[in-house]
């Protein structure tokens, strides 16, 4: 006979039907509130205008709309920045773990510097100061800003992942004559990927979201496109809802994709 458990508030709320009902109610309240609010403002909803910013059919046939172009730019921007951030982050993590006093000093200084400057200020630094000095354009400034900002966080993920591999693995690698570099490459890093994958996914999602900030230097990505459409049409409600939904769709797809990869990875080891 199962042990009787007391009926608590948490247990009632956690049952699926109650959760679904609550969820639907919360969403309904938000939608209702924004609609009535807009109604009171006398807002003129024009949802029918939105699809043409995704795609349209003209005499030239099928055409991709601005939002899709912007989404693509966001993806390319995020991906480029993420790859660069990963390389930088790995470098900083290895420097920090190198046991060299100088290496550790450089790494810690870099981390503290990057982590304690607001992202927006970092962007201005790259665009208004370093941009003119080194002669790079706004796209490069955007990529560098995001890469540098996120490399700090990613390096901590790498460091934690590397440290979670048991010390005996280093000793075993050393005992068969491997150099430190070989031990990293063949023994330590392959094992730490398992520990790094979940937080790295979180970091990609974080990066995609923070990429919106580059709209302040008018890089033509999703958020900038949204602002442009609004300045042409004044449909701020529809456009921001749509842009938010596109970001949400992108990051959700990514999260699900990665958790599928993770499951496969875990069953392998």
């Amino acid at each position: 006979m199962p042990v009787p458990r007391p009926v608590t508030f948490t247990r009632i709320v956690n049952t699926t039907p109650v959760a679904v009902v609550l969820y639907v109610m919360i969403v309904a309240v938000i939608v209702w509130a924004s609609y009535t609010g807009a109604q009171q403002m006398g807002y003129n909803w024009q949802w029918y205008q939105i699809p043409k910013y995704f795609y349209r059919f003209t005499d030239d046939g099928f055409q991709v709309g601005e939002i899709i172009t912007g989404l693509w730019a966001t993806i390319v921007l995020s991906l480029t920045s993420f790859i660069l951030a990963t390389v930088l982050g790995l470098g900083v993590a290895l420097l920090r773990l190198s046991g060299l006093v100088v290496g550790k000093g450089v790494a810690v200084t870099y981390l503290e510097f990057v982590r304690n400057i607001p992202l927006l200020v970092l962007l201005y630094l790259f665009y208004y100061v370093l941009g003119p000095v080194f002669g790079f354009d706004r796209w490069t400034a955007a990529v560098l800003t995001l890469a540098v900002f996120h490399s700090a966080l990613i390096s901590e993920i790498f460091r934690a992942g590397i440290n979670s591999v048991a010390n005996g693995q280093w000793e075993a690698a050393a005992s068969i004559g491997m150099s430190r570099a070989q031990a990293y490459r063949y023994i330590i890093l392959p094992q730490s990927v398992r520990f790094m994958l979940p937080p790295l996914t979180g970091e990609v999602v974080h990066l995609i979201k923070s990429s919106a900030i580059v709209s302040v230097i008018a890089v033509a990505e999703l958020t900038t496109i949204g602002r442009n459409i609004i300045s042409d049409t004044y449909m701020s409600f529809e456009v921001w809802f749509t842009i938010a939904a596109v970001y949400l769709a992108l990051t959700l797809v990514l999260s699900f994709g990665v958790s599928a990869v993770e499951k496969r990875f875990q069953s392998e080891t």
């Binding site: 048991a166 005996g168 693995q169 000793e171 075993a172 690698a173 005992s175 392959p190 094992q191 080891t269």
Partner: peptide
């Protein structure tokens, strides 16, 4: 080693 320290991956 006492704890074998094989490479699990």
């Amino acid at each position: 080693f006492q704890q074998f320290n094989l490479f699990p991956h």
